[in-house]
């Protein structure tokens, strides 16, 4: 039978969700860490939120396949970037490596 978070801990929910990557103001972070010392339930929550974020970030590193011919259709619509000429070549369905 699965347990659920006690009502008294719900006030920490948003803070825990932001704590996992350090996106929390210093005062709130210290208060949360003091709470975590004594609260195994919230420590489970921290661990599983961290796992959740990790899984999505890992999935995002998988290559992305574009629909076939997407670039051709796109460039055909852009004035001055028609298919004739060969200044810049490219291949569809290339994996994404660019960083933000």
């Amino acid at each position: 039978m699965s347990r659920t978070l006690p009502p008294g801990c719900r006030r920490w929910l948003d803070a825990i969700a932001l704590y996992v990557d350090g996106d929390l103001e210093a005062d709130l972070c210290r208060a949360l860490e003091a709470h975590l010392q004594d609260c195994p339930d919230c420590r489970v929550l921290v661990d599983t939120v961290r796992q959740t974020v990790y899984l999505y970030r890992a999935a995002a590193r998988e290559p992305v396949a574009l629909p076939p011919d997407l670039h051709r259709r796109l460039f055909a619509r852009l004035p001055g970037l028609g298919e004739e000429g060969s200044a810049v070549g490219r291949t569809d369905a290339a994996p994404s490596e660019a960083a933000p």
Partner: peptide
């Protein structure tokens, strides 16, 4: 296929399409 570019800004744009299209 290839894109025909006639200016530096167009070339940058084509490069941006290639770099960002999969993630976008």
């Amino acid at each position: 296929m290839s894109a025909s570019v006639s200016s530096p800004s167009q070339q940058h744009f084509v490069q941006a399409v290639e770099a960002y299209a999969p993630r976008l």
